[in-house]
Amino acid sequence: MRHFAKIFLAVLLFCGGGILHAQEQMIPISLPQWLEVKSSSLSKDSILVGEQVVWSTVMAMPQQQEIAFLPYAAVVEAEQAPVDVVRDFRLDTLSIKNGIKELEARLLLTSFDSGYYKLPLMVALTPQGDTIYLDSPFLDVTNIQIDTANFTMHPIKGQMRYPLTFKEVLPWILLGLFVIAAAYLLYRYIKYRRENRDFFGKPVVKDPPHIIALRALDKLRSEKLWQNGKEKLFYTGITDTLREYIEARYNVSAMEKTSGEIMESLKDKSIEEKQYGELDELFKTADLVKFAKYIPQVHENEEAIPVAVRFVNSTFEQTLEEDKQKEEK
């Protein structure tokens, strides 16, 4: 069928003009004997300007007989008919019985000019070289009657809302889900962080300040800084560790305070007099080392970390530790 259609189109291009020209001269409609047009009708006899109408033609012919229709758009254009082809011929086989096949040719048409027209004839070709003209119905194209006496202006209607397809909505759904998921994860992260838990909800075991301080002091001791002439680094490390510990233990912003201010703020913290005095002395020595290039004696260096450790051990929050142990029991 396709092969035939190609041949037909080639022939059509060669002689199409002549055929169309012949229509203008009121060609008599004569059908071959093997072809029977069972029905040829429009879905509506009358349409409004711009409305669409289906032209359906049902025909019967022997099963082996081939037939091809000339594109109706070409016919319309050649005849300059006041109709437009929305969708050209669609040929379907309806049934094959007793060697007879029934075909249906469907066209979708519209018109933007009002009037009563006879549609251009349908043109078909056979492999034998015969040209067949099929009769066409009348189409009434009407305008909307406007009552000019009682006419009232209406605003222009808004754009017609076509229903959204799932494909169109899908990216927005995914974006929404992503935002919801991100917001949930952020909320969970903040909540867990406040509750001192990790991302998966497991409680983060944070070492108490005195453990952190003791660990840092032990590390400083093992680094053997003063033994290698790095007294400044050694004392900076000790004081920084102690300041961090004091900040965490007593809630005193020790990192932003001078040694004198730190000692002043520790006065009312019920620290043993001996530890307080030792810490004061340690800070003073550290200040001398840090800011005055003071090189301490060996015994001062040896005593520095033990003094810091004693201070931490004598001031850490023992009550809390006891409470924790009780809870664990």
Binding site: T258, S259, F291
Partner: peptide, 11 residues
């Protein structure tokens, strides 16, 4: 009467 500056002096 100190030969070096400490943070207290700056403050």
């Amino acid at each position: 009467r100190r030969g070096y500056v400490i943070p207290e002096d700056v403050r």
